[in-house]
């Protein structure tokens, strides 16, 4: 390949990557701009790529008329608590799978794989009845419980992967120095693992924050709705309030994007945690 051809190839690559970058980011920009446009401008043709005048009326409307504050708080509580519990269970379970040889270890891994294979739909009806029997329908605690149950396998497997990167020698050295196994874990292993633990927490948080299917199944009352459930009901038969919907979308996307910046390095682990060999 001569010099000119190489330059052409590099330029072509840059153009394609740049175009896809635009495709990726522009919808996010578009929803932000739409949320700041006055109603009259949202559907004006030709399209306005920048609001003529910036307004926060849709955000005000969302919080004054639509109870969005309640949904926001519900989503935060459910996601934070569920992700916290999931991470704690994952820290213990992952350590167990990575460091202990015990009878039934194979069965546990198999159970995990089975959980990943079964479509959620099969369990949905009985889960609903179970929640109903336990009087946990329309309660945040019920939703948290289901989220924890659904995410524990994922958190355990991803934590196991992180533990396996920490040399066993590190713990053994501490134990030789007289520390008990528990102390060795808390003082030596956990500090090394902190970034991984944070990543697991954030993955779990985002899963709960974004989840619609289970939430819409178990939550029907206004005071227990999470953001996705509320957003799903914004599209009504006769009226779509695009401005408020855009504002709600911006609020729903914001926390996940901020958290994402913190876990960039762990994306691959998070994506493939379900695909490990047992």
């Amino acid at each position: 390949m001569n010099g000119t051809m190489r330059h052409v190839a590099t330029a072509a690559k840059a153009v394609v990557l740049g175009a896809w970058l635009l495709i990726t980011l522009f919808p996010l920009y578009w929803i932000l701009v739409t949320s700041l446009k006055p109603k009259s401008e949202i559907f004006s043709m030709p399209l306005k790529y920048w609001p003529g005048e910036v307004t926060f009326e849709h955000y005000e409307e969302l919080f004054s008329f639509a109870d969005f504050g309640v949904y926001l708080l519900n989503s935060l509580i459910v996601s934070l608590v569920a992700a916290g519990v999931v991470t704690a269970v994952g820290v213990l379970g992952g350590y167990t799978l990575a460091r202990f040889a015990f009878p039934g270890r194979g069965a546990v891994m198999l159970a995990f794989l089975v959980t990943q294979m079964i479509p959620l739909f099969i369990a949905l009806g009985p889960l609903y009845l179970l929640m109903s029997d336990l009087d946990l329908l329309n309660r945040l605690s019920g939703l948290m419980l289901v989220y924890v149950a659904m995410l524990v396998p994922f958190a355990t497997i991803i934590m196991r992967g992180f533990y396996e990167r920490v040399p066993v020698a590190l713990e053994e050295a501490a134990q030789v120095d007289g520390a008990s196994r528990l102390v060795a874990m808390v003082r030596v292993v956990i500090p090394v693992m902190l970034p991984g633990i944070a990543a697991t927490f954030i993955f779990a948080f985002v899963q709960c924050w974004n989840e619609l299917f289970l939430a819409i199944t178990f939550i029907d009352s206004e005071d227990a709705k999470t953001i996705p459930v509320a957003m799903n009901s914004f599209i009504t038969q006769y009226d779509i309030d695009w401005g408020s919907m855009a504002a709600a979308t911006v609020i729903s996307v914001l926390p996940t994007l901020v958290l994402f910046a913190a876990i960039r390095r762990y994306i691959v682990e998070g994506l493939t945690a379900g695909a490990v060999k047992g």
Binding site: L21, T24, L25, N210, F234, T249, S252, L257, F260, R264
Partner: peptide
Amino acid sequence: TAFFLPKMTPPVAVGILLLM
């Protein structure tokens, strides 16, 4: 990182984006 961003968007928001 940029290409991954949409994956962090709630699927409900993706549905709304589709309509818009």
